[in-house]
Computed example of a mutant assay.
Amino acid sequence: MKIKEIIVVEGKDDTVAIKRAVEADTIETNGSAIDQKIIEQIKLAAEVRGVIIFTDPDFPGEKIRKKIIEKVPNCKHAFLPKELAKQKNGKKIGVEHAKPEDIRKALKGAHLMETEPLEIITKQDLIYYRLIGDPNAKTRREKLGEILNIGYTNGKQLLKRLQMFQISRETFMQAMEQIFQEEQING
């Protein structure tokens, strides 16, 4: 599988993992040490070939993603669920620990983030579907992020992420139906 866009990753190990999974070029941010020179490379890459931001599914990875979005808003975003990015012993999380097939799936599901959120899904919907204010809310949000390929967010950020990706009410409701069906099956 060949990827046209340039993939932005955190480090060398991520580049190795990407190249095991797909044929692609990468730009490494050197972790959170991302500087103006790297931002300029990402801007150029976005203009010439397009960019997919593929950072680790953890706090530092999200921080890097936000820093890039501020300077280069026209990027696609790929996400890996935390459980697919865990080191075998479970101590570390990162793209470099993911299986090639999981990396390919994440890249296939890459989305363009819209900067103007749509009022499609409301906070009341999140309460109704028990994505906030419920003991199992975190688990549901993790599953929702996986199904919709938008990554995991906390309760405060979920609505913004759904709106930024312009997830339709219908798509949201289908995903929630799937989650509740799985909960009934798994008891």
Rank of each mutant, 00 (worst) to 15 (best):
M113F: 10
H111M: 07
F180L: 10
S32D: 11
P60E: 06
G50V: 07
A175S: 11
D35F: 04
V48T: 15
T153F: 00
K105L: 12
P135I: 05
K37R: 13
L162G: 00
G187Q: 14
M164K: 09
L131H: 00
A78N: 02
L131T: 00
E47F: 07
I167V: 13
A45Q: 07
P135K: 10
Q124C: 01
E70S: 13
D56R: 02
Q124S: 13
I69K: 11
R169Y: 14
R104W: 08
T115G: 10
E177Y: 12
I42M: 06
I150L: 03
I185F: 11
A106M: 04
A98Q: 01
I132K: 04
Y128A: 11
Q174Y: 09
P81R: 01
R161Y: 00
T139V: 13
A24K: 05
E70V: 10
K71M: 12
M113I: 15
V16I: 15
K4A: 12
G94H: 04
R161C: 01
L44A: 14
K160P: 01
K37S: 14
L44M: 13
E183R: 09
E96T: 06
A137V: 03
I132H: 01
P57D: 08
E83G: 06
T139Y: 09
K88I: 09
K2E: 15
D35M: 06
